[in-house]
Every structure is written in C-alpha cells, then in structure tokens.
Computed example of a mutant assay.
Amino acid sequence: MSGAQPESEIRDVDWYGEDLSGREHTAVRFAAVDLTEATGEGVVFTDCVFVDCRFTAATFTDAAFLNCSFTGCSFSQARFTACKVVGSRFSRCTFDLLDVDGGDWSFVLMPGADLSRVTVAGTRMREADLTGARAAGATLRGLDLSAAELSGIDLRGADLRGSDLSALDPRDAELAGARIDVTQAVELVTTLGLVVAPDPPD
C-alpha cells in the first residue's frame, strides 16, 4: 500500500451483476459492498480499501487494482483476465475456485492465504509475498515468481509447470506430489547443491 488514506466511503451498496466497465475510483473505502457477478472491463481502482466485500463470480478484464487493500473479502469463482493487481494486500480473504489468466500481480501481499483451489496461469507475480501460503493442489502454471517470498509455502500436489521457481528453496517448502517440468527439476536440484552428471562410461 502506498499509505494513502481513503477520502470517501461506499458502504452497504448492492452492485450485484452490475457492469462497472470504464469506472475509476481513487482512495475510496468500500465496506460490505456486494459485487457478486459484477463485470468490469477497464475499471480502475487505485489506493482503495475493500472490507467484507463479495466478489463472488465477478469477472474483470483489463482491470486494475493498484495498491489496494482487501480484508475479509470473498473471491469465490471470480475471474481476472489480463488484470493489474500490483502492490495490493490481501488479508483473511477466500479464493475458492478463483481463476486468474495473465496480467500482473507483482508485489502482492498474500501471506498465509488459502490458494488450494485456485487456477493462476501466465501471470507475473514478481516479488509477491506468498509466505506460508497454502497452495496444495493449486494450478500455478507459467508464473513469473522471480524474487517472490515463498518460505513455508505448501505446494503439495500443485501443478507448477512452466513457472519460475528460482526463488523457491525446496528445503523450506512442502512439495510432495507437485508437478514440475525438466527445467524446473534441474533448477531445484541445483538449489540443493547437487550436480546432475551423465553416467560414467562402462
């Protein structure tokens, strides 16, 4: 968060199924706003605060949530396509069946988040804080996780193929059953200080 304080508040508003396309909001506090099945192409939220808001089954395309804060919000079955969520913070939020396709989620703060039923593909998440995140069984493919904070993350059974795992210390993560590609396997082995060498000649 940039430290900017909300200048206005929108509380207890029903935006169920509403089309928010093209709207712009800066430094607004949204409290208990129902955005269930809302849509928004090109909508921009900057330095906004969302508390106890419902984004259930909402669909956002080419939208931006810049340096926003989300507390106690539901993103169940929401879909974000080519969105920018740079520098945003998530606390006590639920992400059941969240679908993220592309976009830039760099510098997001999601420590301890339950991401076990999310699908995130082709998304930039540079320097994201996923410390202690619970992502067992998640689909996290083709992600740029360079310089991300991944200590204590649970990735058991997750599909990680194509993602940049250069910031992952396999000694400080749960990885049993995770699916990775050959390049990632070599990278993780190298991180452990092992050397992949050909068999000696007979």
Rank of each mutant, 00 (worst) to 15 (best):
G142M: 01
D199G: 13
W15K: 12
G122M: 06
T71N: 15
L20K: 10
V186T: 08
Q77E: 15
R141C: 04
T36E: 12
C53H: 07
E149R: 12
E187C: 04
D14G: 02
C68P: 12
A147N: 15
A57G: 10
D52E: 15
V86M: 03
A27D: 15
G103F: 10
T59N: 02
F70T: 03
A58H: 09
Q5I: 15
T61A: 11
V182P: 02
T191C: 03
R29Q: 14
P200G: 11
A185W: 13
F65S: 11
D154P: 06
F60H: 08
H25D: 14
A176L: 00
S69M: 09
G142T: 03
W15N: 12
D199A: 15
L66W: 00
R79N: 07
L140F: 03
T81F: 05
T81G: 03
L165N: 00
R11T: 04
A178H: 09
A178G: 09
R23T: 07
D172V: 05
A113I: 03
R126P: 00
Q77N: 12
G137K: 09
L109K: 05
R126Y: 04
Y16R: 05
M1W: 05
G193S: 11
D101I: 14
D104S: 07
R141T: 12
T56F: 13
F75E: 07
R11N: 06
T81R: 14
R117H: 08
S8Q: 13
P6S: 06
G102M: 11
E149M: 12
G132S: 05
R179S: 08
L150Y: 11
T94G: 04
R29C: 01
S146Q: 14
T56V: 15
D34I: 06
A82D: 12
A57E: 10
R156S: 09
M110H: 00
D99C: 11
F95W: 12
E7L: 14
L98F: 09
T131A: 03
L150D: 12
R134K: 15
L160A: 03
F107Y: 07
S21I: 10
G112C: 01
L165H: 09
A63W: 04
M125E: 03
A4F: 04
T123A: 13
L66A: 07
G157Q: 10
G122V: 01
D129C: 00
G22N: 08
D62L: 11
G137W: 08
S166K: 09
V120Y: 01
A197T: 05
S116G: 13
A31S: 01
L115Q: 10
G122P: 00
T190A: 15
D99I: 02
A78L: 13
C83W: 10
R134C: 04
D99R: 10
F75A: 06
R134N: 05
I10W: 11
L143N: 14
F80K: 05
P200S: 10
A158M: 02
D172W: 00
S106I: 06
S74A: 07
F30P: 06
V49D: 09
M125Y: 01
T119S: 15
S69Y: 03
A78T: 14
S91L: 06
